[in-house]
Nucleic acid binder design. Structure first.
Lengths: 241, 241
DNA sequence: GTTTTTTCTTGATCTATATCAAGGGTTCAT
DNA sequence: ATGAACCCTTGATATAGATCAAGAAAAAAC
């Protein structure tokens, strides 16, 4: 899909603000931006992202999808919830690896071809650094997920997710509970039961809004990486001080 | 530790062959190699790798260790088994993330400071590309681990690991069973029981050597990424054909 | 080559979470 | 407003793998 001129200006200013393009000027980015492509996916569509047909870098402009793997039995893991401004780069996968993009909402993705990205990396060292930063963040968040999924109990997983929501998105659960449950590697029933356990500790979920009795109940479920973005990080009240 | 001149030559030719330095000449690498540092760790030593004190890129020259996270209860996950020639780059972690390096054998690590690496990336675009490749591989192998750990049963996990060993290391289990069990997120007892299940399918482990009755019994546990390195990949006998 | 230590196996039991089943809320379309 | 999906919750039951315990085998130390 080729976007209209009018939209393009709007798209460029959206892109320009993304961390991927940090410390690069509009002028430097212009040649890359001119290769921008746009594609829409409808709700419930499922697309296989492999490096053969999707040797690209995708940016979620608007919408929501999950990156998943499904096995022969139909069991699924959610590798990543891809919200607005998030990236996915099948261009970095090996030719034999693939994941499914499962669209939760109607979604508009931007993408750049592997060649455009490679050229921009060659022309602007800063862009290479940004790509490295993006991949390093991906590595770290996958390591953190592995830790959460393997070591935490159901209640701890849910508590941990609520801390994230508290710190990032102003006390609100950003997605349906069943999506979060899948991301945490548990069944919706277990998620629900974990929530009722947390209620006993003064942590209440009222129509997706997190309500706390004292305000510090979630600190027990925090980790230092997400904690660093908390207003109370390393104050006497914080566990990571 | 400053290595002697005699050792240095040997070290350089070792390094030069690593994928990290693909498509770079000895001459291009010389300035980086001159900043090489070496450190030894003894068996059972545990070191916290965080980006504050370990803002470096480590290369395992000789020995074996595991990258782990341990929680308050003492439960551990193994994020990666780091064998000879493998890399770990705490320099890419956020300042608040850390992992433990738990040395299984006496180990000699090489390392380069973040500054040396950054300079080499700036001077040689190819080196940036190699760093990107290394991180992309890390992302992919973490995604694959997540899949294996979450979706597979104990027996399938062990079968999957045996396929790896079969394809990479000539039918031999490279590490103690308890280490592999930990890497697969299971107890040694469960590993042992899984092995006896596999025995019924004609898959026998005789003193770390994998013995198969017909030769194709492990194919059921293969994945396409590791499968691509198998001699029979995409032949009629292969499940991924 | 014998002892000591570590690793592995096997059996009995326990437990957290999955699964199955059914009812209660919300949201959306008409 | 009313019905139809869909999502969530709660209860009963099942189960894979953990834990506990003890013995066997292998490796390391002397």
């Amino acid at each position: 899909m080729v976007p209209t001129k009018k939209h393009l200006e709007q798209y460029y200013s959206y892109l320009y603000k993304l961390p991927l393009f940090n410390n690069l000027t509009q002028k430097e980015l212009q040649p890359l931006f001119e290769t921008l492509q746009v594609r829409q996916f409808h709700k419930n569509e499922i697309v296989t992202f492999n490096s053969k047909e999707h040797s690209r870098l995708y940016i979620n402009f608007d919408g929501l999808f999950k990156l998943t793997k499904i096995d022969e039995r139909g069991d699924e893991i959610v590798l990543k919830i891809v919200d607005k401004k998030d990236l996915v780069s099948p261009m970095h996968f090996s030719p034999h690896y693939d994941v499914a993009a499962d669209f939760v909402k109607k979604t508009t993705l931007f993408y750049f071809s592997q060649e455009s990205i490679a050229k921009t990396m060659a022309d602007h060292h800063q862009f290479s650094l940004n790509i490295v930063q993006y991949l390093a963040n991906s590595v770290q968040s996958l390591m953190l997920s592995a830790e959460v999924l393997q070591l935490k109990t159901a209640k701890e997983k849910v508590g941990w997710y609520l801390v994230h929501s508290k710190i990032n998105s102003t006390f609100e659960l950003p997605y349906p509970k069943s999506l979060i449950a899948a991301y945490l590697g548990m069944q919706p029933e277990s998620f629900s039961r974990a929530l009722s356990e947390l209620k006993k500790e003064g942590i209440l979920l009222d129509n997706k809004k997190i309500k706390l009795e004292n305000g510090d109940e979630l600190c027990a479920y925090c980790d230092p990486v997400i904690g660093a973005d908390c207003a109370f990080f390393k104050t006497p009240n914080c566990l990571h001080s």
